[in-house]
Simulated scan of single mutants.
Amino acid sequence: MKRVIVIVLVGLLAWQGYLKYQASRAENLVRQVSVDVEPSSGPSPRKSETVPSDLFKCDGRTHCSQMRTCAEARFFLQNCPGVKMDGNNDGIPCEQQWCK
């Protein structure tokens, strides 16, 4: 019985490590994406606005507490219906948790 518990705990730790690795990988990819914008009279877009869509998918999550990174929150805000992550409607999600 102890062996089963140890195996389950090791599996859970490995899964958490994998999820953190994926989140950091996604954040690094978003940082590498640069947006080439001609100077204009309006405000300049943020570099991290472009999020590769193959990293995330709409899966029903709607709140900041369900996100793991700012990049993930941005993707959900821009691509998924019914999210509740931009209380002041300024286009920046999860400002108190992820996108400071």
Rank of each mutant, 00 (worst) to 15 (best):
M85E: 03
V33C: 00
G91C: 06
E38M: 07
A73M: 09
Q22G: 11
K57P: 00
C64Q: 05
P52D: 10
L13A: 09
V51A: 01
K57W: 02
T50D: 06
R74D: 00
Q22W: 02
S41T: 07
E72M: 00
C70K: 00
S44V: 05
R46V: 06
A26K: 00
K100R: 13
Q32N: 15
E95S: 01
D86E: 04
V30W: 01
S44K: 15
R68Q: 15
V33H: 07
R61I: 06
S48I: 02
H63L: 15
E95F: 08
G82N: 12
P43H: 13
K84L: 14
F75L: 06
V8I: 10
E49P: 01
R61S: 08
G87E: 11
A14Y: 04
A26H: 06
G87R: 15
P45G: 00
S53V: 12
S34Y: 09
C58A: 04
F75W: 11
N28C: 05
M1S: 12
Q66G: 06
G11Q: 05
I7T: 14
Q97D: 15
D86S: 01
N79S: 08
R68V: 03
G87P: 07
P43S: 12
K100T: 04
F75P: 00
L12Y: 10
Q22T: 08
F76Q: 07
R25D: 15
R3M: 13
T69D: 07
T62W: 00
D90K: 14
L12V: 10
K57V: 02
M67R: 00
R61H: 06
Q66V: 14
N88I: 04
K2C: 09
M67W: 02
V10A: 07
S41H: 10
W15E: 04
F75V: 03
D36R: 09
P52T: 04
Q32L: 12
K100W: 02
N89C: 14
W98M: 11
M1T: 13
R3V: 14
C80F: 08
W98D: 14
E49C: 06
T69P: 03
A71Y: 01
V35I: 07
Q32R: 10
A71H: 01
K20C: 08
W15S: 11
K2M: 08
T50E: 02
L19F: 05
K100E: 08
W15K: 10
L77D: 00
V33A: 06
V10K: 06
L12Q: 05
Y18E: 13
S40M: 11
I7Q: 10
I92S: 01
V51G: 00
S48D: 05
N88L: 02
E72C: 01
S65Y: 05
G91S: 10
L19N: 13
